[in-house]
């Protein structure tokens, strides 16, 4: 097992290197540099050039690349020239917000997805089954941002049930009121994600439930006289959750890849919104840091995925 983890980890290293090269190339393709925004037309061109040289922007690309990597390892992601703050500090708060939103969404996806898949699979072909299958294929295919806007319009503005922007109310003071207010702000975006993102969980679980139902070990259990309920929960459900568990890594990553649009619509101050804001202001340092962060996270997620998969499914381990 540890061998497999080590091997999977080693595979990650070249992937990570390739990604940093890609991001570095993107950064170099972006017009302007950190000093472009800092000086007005009056600034002496020689001062500018000196500053550039001192910042190492005239060095050959490989030198710059390795300096950038070195800085990252020391936790230095550069400074945002627009917001005049180190990017690392800027990201910290935003990432927290995104993580909370993501975890709540993921939790809701599982609470909605699992029971509906079970209901569907246990009544295959019934109205219930057709309803949930159709529901999932539609919600899984329509563009998310339109849904988010409808949800915001309906529950935020029209019915006034939930706040329409931000992550916490300014009036909230003290630990519990702030926590409550944060949670209150999370509900609508999280629910919007959950209601319309169950498709992959639903399909995976439903298919594996249906497959397991006709498997030999289930028939054997039945033949031994095990009660239906016990057969379902002990044999069918347990085994069917394995493929679901194995996609957990990617689900986790999905939180961050969906954040751009979700946070923009709900005006939620997370990492995705920060990214869109920094594109608008051409804040390249921040953009790059966010891409690096979510890319690394995806890598870790897919590694986690493979490890969980081989952990729950011995066939892969043996191979």
């Amino acid at each position: 097992m540890w061998k497999l983890i080590l091997r999977r980890f080693l595979i990650m290293i070249p992937q990570l290197i390739l990604m940093t090269i890609l991001l570095f190339a993107l950064a170099k393709m972006m017009p302007g540099d950190p000093f472009t925004g800092r000086f007005s037309a009056h600034t002496d061109i020689h001062t500018l050039l000196r500053l550039r040289r001192e910042a190492g922007l005239d060095d050959p690309w490989p030198t710059q690349y390795f300096r950038w990597i070195n800085n990252i390892f020391h936790g230095n992601l550069g400074n945002s020239f627009v917001l005049q703050k180190p990017v690392a500090t800027l990201l910290g708060q935003r990432i927290q917000n995104t993580v909370w939103l993501g975890l709540l969404s993921l939790g809701l996806v599982y609470t909605i997805g699992i029971p509906t898949a079970v209901a569907s699979a246990t009544h295959e072909g019934s109205f219930r089954d057709r309803f949930w299958t159709t529901y999932n294929s539609i919600t899984g295919g329509i563009p998310a941002f339109v849904i988010y806007i409808f949800m915001l319009f309906l529950f935020g503005f029209t019915l006034n049930w939930f706040p329409t922007t931000g992550s916490v109310s300014i009036d909230a003071n003290g630990f519990w009121p702030v926590l409550g207010s944060r949670f209150y702000h999370l509900i609508l975006p999280a629910l919007s994600v959950a209601l319309f993102s169950t498709v992959s969980l639903f399909n995976t679980l439903r298919t594996s439930l249906l497959d397991a139902r006709s498997a030999d070990y289930v028939r054997t259990a039945r033949a031994k006289g095990v009660s239906n309920k016990r057969v379902f929960w002990r044999h069918i459900f347990r085994n069917s959750m394995l493929p679901v568990a194995s996609t957990f890594g990617f689900d986790l990553v999905g939180i961050f890849s969906g954040a751009v649009i979700l946070e923009t619509v709900f005006g939620y101050p997370g990492m995705g919104r920060l990214f869109v804001q920094s594109i608008t202001t051409r804040d390249y340092t921040t953009m790059n840091a966010i891409m690096l962060f979510s890319g690394t996270l995806t890598l870790i997620g897919s590694m986690l995925n493979d490890i969980i998969m081989s952990w729950v499914d011995p066939r892969i381990r043996i191979k």
Partner: peptide
């Protein structure tokens, strides 16, 4: 490799470049 890079963000970045 392409499925682990942050696709949407890179798309948006490319479109600004």
């Amino acid at each position: 490799y392409l499925s682990i890079v942050p696709t949407l963000m890179i798309l948006l970045t490319l479109l600004t470049i």
